[in-house]
Design a protein around this nucleic acid. Structure first.
Lengths: 335, 335
DNA sequence: TATGCTTGTCGAAACGTTTTAGTCAAAAGC
DNA sequence: GCTTTTGACTAAAACGTTTCGACAAGCATA
């Protein structure tokens, strides 16, 4: 109800509102004695700065927008946790938007961000829409792409090399003795799925195999456990079991694992299995799952650091396209 | 950079700023012809309302704060998704805070919310601190407790009956023929863990068993898969395997499952196993997991609807303490 | 024709900060 | 001892909305 303003603080401390503002924003500019007097008044009155008024006058807020494709996916959740961490450390608030992969919803999120006059936006784009983002930049809102390498040099982005990831997985399977490999994946229109396939093919070529021969693609529509199980059941039913299965995603891999075990196929004795993402549950499954680990948390952290650096040091800021390297995690399913 | 203000829109449409504001907020109050003229100007100039200015003058923002204990936990993630959904439908932005179970961090989140002058706060409290929340209410910020039943009638809350949940789980185990049951749980200082235990004991009593005899508590410090596995290993090593294991959490249950299978104990033939939360991964494990399902998504949705109702209709709003009922999901691990 | 009522628009005063220019005394420089 | 510099503070003008009282025009009623 009654919110204390800077004026009341000023009155109680016997100074002008401007001085209170200085105590808040440039404490070194005000004399020790008055500063402590003002701070005392602030405490006694329970004053908290009015963010809207502050950002209206100052011209910029202390918030960033985060738009992710699917907040239910542990991958994005970890990213979000990293973002929240850094933002909170630096006194920024995070406005969350979930696009659910829907372009329209994403656009609505961006509008909300624009209305809130966020300082910057972190986004895992749902589609390849550079236009809307440039529009935001035109409004003075910085944008950092997350899990999506920028194609232009005038923007920041943070991603993980999915081609390397695909190579790592398949090289490992080959080293473990696999001849024929199945790649269980979501739609290849998803960049991540396509890149991991490319990596897989490169690993095969490098090992002197013909990707067309050694690799079978099994595409499913949804990247969840159920689809994975169905894919496994299909492979079993058609009697064309490969030596190893590489899944574009741990959820798919968990489903495949389940499907195989149910059909009496032993993992890793009969079929090797490796997933992607290294979600927490990967190590908790009955046969613990080998996987490709991505530095999700760091992804979020670095993206936010980049963004806030761009906001706070617009002059000295150099745009960066950060590309992390994924890491192979070997567990029972390929041993 | 250059943001278009309401004045420029007014100038282009040949009306006063006040009229533009009316078009934005009470379109029915302005004549058809002028309205469309103004809307045209808005489109042409790419105007978007300045949220800070708006909430400064109007006295309230269009944002809500959401403070959760652990954004990495699928339970809270689902809740958050529900919150985001409703908020976004109603044109509200969600400011996310992750307390990590830390009281201090939670307090910092609340401060940020207060600075942003959020319309209301949704919170899964990290501790039993009513004080801070009453302080927020004193500032005119509405508060809804999430997954925590309010003890007073003057506030809204949304929760799931954990006592019923505990009963459901244990009744099911008893019906399936279990005699001795182990309850693997996190610290009993966590309300949810304690309530589920109470429910378990009630189910035993109702079945004419002595809870002291039939139920063994195995408390671990962290509620994750690793702790669960350790608990299972301990039970096996000490040679005191129960007929059934009830876990306070699916992550624990997945760990227990793994520990048992590794020791050659068959589930469900040798030991029955049931978890809690019914996270997605529960159905994807090697032996699919029976569990207690909570309406997480609805929890988030209803909490947000309650909050926004309280914000928009302060007069007619009646405080509610909503208590959802959990649901038994039977899968392989108890069949 | 005067009166009241309705409808649509305007002008101006807020809202709570930040910031700029300016005041005034005390310290420093010559 | 005079000017200049510094340091600490103040006063007032913004920032972009919303809202409220005023008012003009149109129209029905008396």
């Amino acid at each position: 109800m009654s919110s204390v303003s800077i004026k009341e603080v000023a009155a109680r401390a016997g100074v002008s509102p401007g001085t209170v503002s200085n105590v808040l924003n440039r404490p070194e500019k005000v004399a020790e004695s008055t500063r402590s007097r003002v701070e005392k008044a602030i405490r006694e009155l329970g004053f908290v700065r009015h963010g809207s008024a502050s950002s209206l006058r100052a011209g910029h807020s202390r918030t960033v927008g985060l738009s992710v494709i699917d907040i239910g996916n542990p991958f994005f959740t970890d990213v979000a946790a990293g973002v929240e961490e850094v933002a909170s450390e630096r006194g920024y608030a995070v406005i969350l938007g979930n696009s659910s992969g829907d372009r329209l919803k994403e656009e609505r999120n961006l509008l909300v961000f624009a209305e809130q006059r966020v300082r910057g936006v972190l986004i895992t784009p749902a589609g390849g829409d550079l236009a809307k983002l440039d529009q935001l930049r035109g409004r003075g809102i910085n944008v950092v792409l997350v899990d999506h390498p920028a194609e232009r040099a005038d923007q920041c982005s943070v991603a993980v090399n999915d081609i390397t990831g695909g190579s790592l997985a398949v090289s490992h399977l080959l080293a473990a003795g696999a001849g024929r490999i199945a790649y269980v994946t979501g739609p290849l229109t998803i960049r991540q799925c396509a890149d991991r396939l490319t990596g897989a093919e490169r690993a095969l070529s490098a090992a002197g195999r013909d990707p067309g021969q050694a690799l079978e693609e099994v595409a499913v529509s949804a990247m969840n456990a159920r689809s994975g199980q169905q894919a496994a059941e299909k492979l079993v039913a058609e009697g064309r079991l490969p030596d190893a299965v590489f899944c574009a995603n741990d959820l798919l891999a968990l489903g495949v694992l389940r499907g195989l075990l149910h059909a009496g196929v032993r993992v890793p004795q009969d079929v090797l299995l490796i997933g992607y993402d290294d979600i927490d549950f990967a190590s908790a499954s009955a046969v613990s799952l080998s996987s490709i680990r991505q530095p999700t948390h760091r992804l979020g952290r670095v993206a936010t650091e980049l963004l806030l650096d761009e906001c706070d040091n617009p002059e000295s800021h150099a745009h960066q396209q950060v590309m992390f390297q994924p890491e192979l995690v070997v567990r029972e399913s390929t041993r």
